[in-house]
Write a protein that binds this DNA or RNA. Structure first.
Lengths: 226, 226
DNA sequence: TAAAGAAAAATTGCATACAATTTTGATGTT
DNA sequence: AACATCAAAATTGTATGCAATTTTTCTTTA
């Protein structure tokens, strides 16, 4: 995992240090990473093309934010893409991959019982990434990971919010059901469960937003409504 | 349609002036477009992130090339994405959009009868783009257009090759069948036909490659096998 | 003639400079 | 206190310079 400048800047968003709507100021980033503005600009342009950040001529780039409709559309698209990955993985994964999937589920059970949210987030990434690999289609994997990257600030927020998504049991159970279908070679069922899983994530996220919106104090995730 | 530097460089690939494996040399492009290397580099980075070109450290960027397996995977992924767009468009398009779809099909019939290949390529773009819009999902549209962009050098080649894809009737008939299903609101059928359509395109492309490969003279599309 | 190696040329990566534009902050007005 | 206006500061867009690396060309050798 070469930590390129691009990845380092993306990590600021992934780790939540930069939130939707936050500005990416070139000189600050240049100072922070000990380089000049030139390589920073190039990294920012790449992240703009990836859709993680938004580039506005003559103005600072900002972490991309989604309004309610866009978020809903993004989750619909992601649901279908992940469902496709799951259904292909169900019939294409080899024994070694199936074994690893079982191991991931065991780890996930442990982590969700201990309510270890950072670990759960990490395992969520691994679970979906493993299905992307299992689908044996590099273009699909690229598409799936790009789509996930774009909504990273929102999905990560979802995982970290205590109170919302109150326990980690629900997502874990959903993952377990998907894994069972995949291991049984039942692609149709894996796809159906995956769609439900992603739809549920959107609902949790929307509830969180409605609550923070109605309160008068500043939302924890800025810029979600443009 | 603002022709940004990024779009201008992409057009070199889309129009076929640059083929898979061709180098994108910064200074040449800078001279060509009358700017310095800096904005050229930024455009190249963006196109690299989009997946149209490949960036290699310390070496010139090259137009991305796919080997047989990658091409097959790309078409599988694209088939599913386009199928999803079609099935959503079937139930979401409004009357104005359905009217325009009919108009597109009429134009397509005319063009395919006259065997006007450049116009057919243009209409192919419009047909698929119209379905992307009709699906009413901006993330899905982004994903679909990115996926199409990546294989642009190959799909355009397919359309232009006389002898392969011998007449334009087959793709036109396939489009017409898809349009009928969409207009009838039959999403399932539209998706099925779209998958077939894309699968057929891959087969034509593979036939073309097998023939050019077996011949000893240089292939018309360079770099397709890495 | 072909292959290998070295020198020369070309090319990329990054820093820096400066003009154009945007953002910030101060000041004054209602 | 809220708002408008304007100057100062900060920020972006692009050009240019130079070191590091790659690519090409030329020479030598087998």
């Amino acid at each position: 995992m070469p930590h390129t400048l691009r990845q380092k800047i993306a990590d600021l968003v992934i780790k939540g240090e930069l939130k939707p709507g936050d500005r990416l100021e070139e000189l600050s980033l240049a100072d922070r990473f000990g380089v000049s503005r030139t390589p920073i600009r190039e990294a920012i342009r790449q992240l703009g093309a990836s859709g993680l950040i938004e580039i506005r001529p003559r103005r600072s780039a900002v972490v991309r934010s989604f309004d309610r409709a866009e978020l809903s559309e993004a989750f619909e698209a992601m649901g279908e893409i992940e469902a496709l990955c799951a259904s292909l993985a169900a019939v294409r994964m080899n024994e070694a991959e199936r074994l690893k999937l079982r191991a991931l589920m065991a780890a996930s059970q442990d982590v969700s019982q201990r309510n270890d949210r950072p670990a759960a987030l990490e395992l969520d990434f691994e679970f979906h990434g493993h299905l992307h690999d299992g689908a044996r289609n590099r273009m699909l994997k690229t598409v799936a990971e790009e789509t996930r990257l774009r909504i990273t600030p929102y999905s990560a927020a979802l995982f970290m919010m205590e109170g919302y998504n109150a326990d980690l049991e629900l997502p874990h159970q959903q993952h377990a059901a998907i894994a069972d279908a995949v291991l049984a070679g039942n692609g149709k069922e894996a796809a159906r469960l995956m769609r439900e899983h992603i739809a549920q994530a959107l609902i949790s996220l929307q509830q969180f937003f409605e609550d923070t919106q109605s309160r008068s104090d500043a939302p924890k995730v800025k810029g979600e409504v443009r």
